[in-house]
């Protein structure tokens, strides 16, 4: 499972669990994410404020804020 993980200093994305529903993308207040090839991608990590709304609403537990 770990070989398909994107780890940044603020967010972790598990592509194996992501189903690409786009919920995190839509409700991210800072447009940090997008869906590409049916998986979530971090496109602008600098803007991430680690509010945790992506983690809160991800139905697949596929994205979370580090250090929480």
């Amino acid at each position: 499972m770990n070989n398909n993980e994107t780890v940044t200093d603020k967010l972790v994305v598990n592509e194996n669990w992501c189903k690409g529903c786009g919920i995190c993308v839509k409700f991210c207040p800072k447009n940090v994410l997008k869906v590409e090839n049916e998986k979530v991608k971090v496109i602008d990590i600098d803007k991430c404020i680690q509010c945790g709304l992506c983690e809160l609403r991800c139905p697949d537990f596929a994205i979370y804020v580090r250090g929480k």
Partner: peptide, 14 residues
């Protein structure tokens, strides 16, 4: 046991 069986976007995981 993950990922779960629910459809993409199903609210049940939340």
């Amino acid at each position: 046991k993950l990922p779960q069986i629910w459809c993409p976007g199903c609210g049940h995981g939340i």
